[in-house]
């Protein structure tokens, strides 16, 4: 079977160690986690993990059942790319003097839709929110300019299907 990107949304009680329990399922099935993000959800006291994997459908279905079997997991879903709306955020730290390079800032603002978060004497921090290929394009662009630091968040995603979590509880 062919591999694709799947976004898992896992809704859980907010308990110490639960993330270990969930990630252990990936280890057992030998599935690599591409990215992971944790936050609260729309319901008070319920946490939400957004986990991206690159796998075949069968393996993902089994994985999701194993996750959902955990006592403190309320519900786990898996969605294909086109069923979700998703974003990542990336931060880029550069020497401040890069700003003065001819055309540099113009390219950033016109073509990469970047936000300038902070400018200090020695460095500045840029922020870009978007999908992987967009933050990656910016990374490629900035590499030659003496990039000092780079970090990208895990994907956060909401699903297009309209069923609410509440309806499962």
């Amino acid at each position: 079977m062919s591999k694709r990107y799947y976004t898992l949304s896992v809704f859980t009680e907010n308990k110490i160690g639960l993330l270990n329990r969930i990630t252990a399922m990936f280890t057992r099935q030998h599935i690599n986690i591409e990215s992971i993000a944790a936050s609260e959800s729309e319901i008070d006291g319920i946490h939400r993990y957004t986990i991206v994997v690159f796998e075949d459908k069968n393996a993902v279905q089994k994985l999701v059942k194993q996750i959902e079997k955990q006592v403190e997991v309320l519900k786990a879903f898996h969605h294909e790319e086109e069923e979700t709306v998703f974003q990542e955020i990336a931060l880029y730290k550069l020497p401040s003097k890069t700003m003065n390079k001819a055309g540099f800032m113009e390219e950033l603002i016109r073509n990469h839709n970047v936000r300038l978060l902070s400018v200090e004497e020695a460095f500045m921090v840029l922020e870009k929110t978007g999908q992987r290929h967009e933050t990656q394009a910016l990374l490629n662009y900035l590499q030659p300019y003496g990039l000092l630091e780079f970090v990208r968040s895990g994907r956060v995603a909401v699903t297009k299907p309209m069923a609410t979590l509440e309806s499962y509880l």
Partner: peptide, 8 residues
């Protein structure tokens, strides 16, 4: 009784 066993 265990949904995770189905199609495993």
């Amino acid at each position: 009784i265990d949904p995770a066993e189905i199609d495993k």
